Simulated scan of single mutants.
Amino acid sequence: MSDGAQGAGGADDASMDYYLIFATPEDRDRGAPPLGILVEEFVLCADYTAAGIDSVEWSAATGAWRGSATTSRDIRTDALPRSRVIPVSRHDASDAYQACGGGELPREAEIRTLSRERQPLPAAAPLDLGTTGSRRYRVLFAGEPRDLGSLRSALRLEPVEDPADPLARVIGTATATAAGHDFTWELRRIGPGIAWCLDVTVRLGTGPETPIGALLHHHRQAIRGQCLIPVTIERFA
């Protein structure tokens, strides 16, 4: 990686995101064999914002890997392609890969050497909001959560507004402290059926900044586990 960007994690620590691709939404819902597997990795800057998404796709029909920036972009911008994919763990992707005749799923270090394509994400300097000593991040997601109750539990959210109300915006909020940094996060709905976001405020302490990246990664994966697809990681201050 260049220009201060880095992968989301180490060589084989399951830092990549895996999706099963199905022919139709009905095939996805009834557990039919997938057409292929999409593997993505967020390319992160030093402050843990996203500079791009590297992606590669495996086809069960051909047994070949190919760059997949178009699929990666389409599942974030178009509800139909999104309805044909399901986020899964590396373990589940490995089982599907083997069941479809692929054999043993390559290690993540090897996947990085395949014919990947990068979808660049727009980047801008954080706004000066007069919050010296603080950072404000937004992780944007496409789609709708499968189980909002489970998502609130995974993020340890205290309720703010009634999630059953389609006009409710802030679903819940939570706080934590790690390495001297104070974290506050809240889950927001961006319009009914449009998108969701996780807003994270960090009041910086004197400890290392790695817990910031760890929290953003953990929460992104928890939300992704409820079938929301991460779009980007921005920083506002």
Score class of each variant (00 low, 15 high):
Met1Trp: 09
Ala8Glu: 11
Gly9Ser: 10
Gly9Cys: 09
Asp12Thr: 04
Ala14Lys: 08
Met16Leu: 15
Tyr19Thr: 00
Phe22Val: 09
Asp29Ser: 11
Pro34Cys: 06
Leu35Val: 06
Val39Leu: 11
Glu40Pro: 00
Leu44Gln: 00
Cys45Gln: 10
Asp47His: 00
Thr49Gly: 00
Ile53Cys: 03
Ser55Gln: 03
Ser59Gln: 14
Gly63Asp: 09
Ser68Lys: 01
Ala69Gly: 01
Ile75Phe: 09
Arg76Cys: 05
Thr77Cys: 03
Ala79Asn: 08
Pro81Leu: 04
His91Asn: 15
Ala93Asp: 01
Ala93Ser: 06
Ser94Ala: 15
Ala96Trp: 07
Gln98Thr: 14
Ala99Asp: 09
Leu105Glu: 09
Glu108Leu: 09
Glu110Ala: 14
Ser115Glu: 12
Gln119Tyr: 03
Pro120Cys: 09
Pro122Phe: 00
Ala125His: 08
Gly130Ala: 02
Tyr137His: 02
Phe141His: 05
Gly149Met: 01
Val160Pro: 07
Ala164Asn: 12
Ala164Leu: 13
Pro166Asp: 02
Val170Glu: 13
Thr177His: 04
Ala178Thr: 10
Ala179Trp: 00
His181Val: 10
Gly191Leu: 10
Gly193Asn: 12
Val202Asp: 05
Arg203Gly: 14
Thr206Tyr: 05
Glu209Asp: 14
Gly213Pro: 04
Ala214Phe: 05
Leu215Asn: 00
Leu216Glu: 01
Leu216Met: 01
Ile223Gln: 05
Cys227His: 15
Ile229Thr: 14
Pro230Asn: 11
Pro230Asp: 09
Thr232Ala: 06
Thr232Phe: 01
Thr232Trp: 00
Ile233His: 01
Glu234Asp: 07
